[in-house]
Design a protein around this nucleic acid. Sequence first.
DNA 1: TTAGGGTTAG
Length: 566
Amino acid sequence: MSVLLRSFSTAAATAVAVSTFSSPSSSSALSVAALLISCRSLRSLEQIHARIIRKGLEQHPVIATRFLSFCAAFSAPAYASSAFDRLSAPNLIVWNALLAAHARHSPLPTTVALFNLLRRRCSLPPDAFTFPSLLSSCSHSVALSLGSSVHATILRCGLEADVFVRTALIDFYGKCRELRAARKLFDSMRHRNEVSWTAMIVGYLSSGDLASARSLFDEMPKRNVVTWNAMIDGYVKSGDLVTARQIFDKMPERNAVSYTSLIDGYAKAGDLASARVLFEQLPERDVFSWSAMISGYAQNGQPGAALKIFLEMYNQNIKPDEFVVVGLMSACSQLGSLTLAKWVDLYVTRSSIDLSKAHVLAASIDMNSKCGNMERAASLFESMPNKDLISYCSLMQGYSLHGAGDKAMGLFRQMLEEGLMPDSITFTVVLAACSRAGLVEEGRQCFDLMTNEHLIVPSPDHYACMVDLLGRAGRLTEAYELIRSMPVEPHAGAWGALLGACRIHGDISLGETIARKLFEIEPTNAGNYVLLSNIYAVADRWADVSELRTLMRGKGIRKVPGFTWI
DNA sequence: TTAGGGTTAG
């Protein structure tokens, strides 16, 4: 949005400049320039573009440049290119504006191709305005060798001393973790500004060198809000929320980024209360702030709260981004509501969110499969050109939850055939699918495959799945032996699975042993008491049932009544 | 001898 802001300050200058252009009607150029300055959306930019063409101002270099920079502000590089292609003799400034639009929004190869085109087609060599955007594109892609060759070109052009070029170089080497190169450029600068200092600090922060970042931060003569925010984010990312908060409290002026970084930190640490307080204090929330709260609640198992925040955002007509949508889908999959899932699906289709992005697609597959729309989940999966581990796991888990263990196993085999390497989580999903479907042999084979061929050390979750698998199949002794042979401490889930199996198969004495163990690990979980009580009830041991109920009452444990969404 | 283009934070 900096382009928008800047355009206001130079409004008068543009009007004067445009009026001197020797066109058929310089007054219409003036009015078009004024329109561009007040342009607030891509839609109105399109209308202004039509007007530019109608008035014969398409070739006007100042109008064209400003138009291209607005395309950049509204993330429309393709639109910028189509307008640029109609120009008969673009000068270097117009080329630079086009390059900037692509550098910010197109993949690096596109930007580089454009730069090469500029060098061939433009009558002037690239200048100090050309390289900063090209370098920032290299920084974002962490393209060290490409950026280094750009640096060589900069030296040949004699532009290394320019503050903007030099700062972009510092940022580039910093992001590529070449801190000595960055620092050498920084130290030998004759004139530095806050942006140069901040770029150097960000370099240290992205390599995790908080101490060097902090000493530069303390040393720098003048800080701006971006500098402060970079430090907050650095501390948040390192997990030091206390120092992040100190910086936040000390800063002279805050913006939405300052709040959102800290909100994100609190939310990721599970401190939703602190996150919420800051969110309520935030004067102007943007889509990132909403997203931080929505995914914060969703990731901490509070889907209802996530949904409530989303609805508030929806009612304020704020356009969601992909992160909001992923958070929303995650909340929805936890709630398991098919009606809601269908609404979210429709909502995303109608929004401008790119559903083909891997993490959005994975979230959508997960939501649809957990909410029971397996057809939709499968068709989304099939639409993926490059299926990854996460999407495979989402769909496998969906089949597993709906009792289609054979389909889950089919997918697992397909995954292996495609050459994907299953990880620890994949095996948790696969083993759970086997145990739900009673596929004892397949489960055993998978466990062997995991330990012997993929050399994955089984986690307590993997053991719990195997115990569940053996227990359900009635192999209680084997399951018990497996638990006792575990090199890691079994968690309640593994014992609970075995207790459940004891109930199914009516093994009272083993059930009692397991239950005693469970009462120790989680003394307040009512489910364990109820399971043992059910085991006694099936065997008509009503005295034991009643004794257990008394024990529960004595400990103040109450069973939470079951509920369903259907 | 004027306009219009460039670098840092979530």
